[in-house]
Simulated scan of single mutants.
Amino acid sequence: MSSWAIVAIAGIIIWGIVEIARARAGIITDEDGNQKIAKRKDEKSKAELMAAKRELADLKERVKVLERIATDGNTTDARERARIAAEIEALRGLPAAKEEQSE
């Protein structure tokens, strides 16, 4: 065998090894020759992703509730509304008490 044939065979083998490694790593080439990493379709990772999304949604809901508890009753507007509501309720009971006393 000539030395050029040995070089050609070694080159083909190396090229094949590189292509197999790229395929295992998920590197693909589009029609323009650009290389991209292909997304893998692992069922386990999809289930984990969905569980993480559900947990994140639950945590966001808990934070909303905690923010509402921490801020709603403690603002000056909320205190003012509560004071006005209590005053209105007290005034509602006041005329009814006067009518009972006059009879």
Rank of each mutant, 00 (worst) to 15 (best):
A8W: 07
V7N: 06
I12V: 14
A52W: 08
K44Y: 09
I20K: 03
I69G: 02
A57G: 00
W15V: 10
S45N: 09
I28L: 10
A5S: 15
A8G: 01
G33Q: 00
K39S: 14
T29L: 02
S3C: 12
A21W: 00
I28W: 02
K98F: 15
G93R: 04
N74H: 05
A47C: 05
E67K: 08
I14W: 04
E19D: 11
I9L: 11
T75E: 03
R79A: 11
V65E: 01
R81C: 10
K98G: 03
A51T: 04
E100W: 11
L66E: 05
G11R: 01
D32Q: 15
R83D: 10
T71Y: 10
I88W: 02
T76D: 13
R24M: 15
G26Y: 00
E61T: 06
I27H: 05
A52L: 12
L56F: 04
S2E: 06
R81I: 12
E61H: 08
I20L: 13
I14N: 08
E87K: 08
I88S: 05
I13R: 04
A5W: 14
I88E: 05
A96R: 15
E80T: 14
L91M: 09
K36N: 12
T75H: 01
A8D: 09
T71G: 03
S2G: 14
A10W: 06
E89D: 08
R81Y: 07
M1N: 03
E55P: 00
W4L: 13
R22Y: 06
A8R: 09
T76F: 09
T76L: 12
L59S: 06
K60E: 01
P95A: 11
A5D: 15
L94C: 09
R81D: 10
A38V: 04
A5Y: 15
V65N: 08
A25Y: 03
G73A: 09
E89S: 10
G33M: 02
K41T: 14
K60F: 00
M1R: 10
E67D: 14
A52S: 07
D32R: 13
E43L: 11
Q35D: 05
T75R: 07
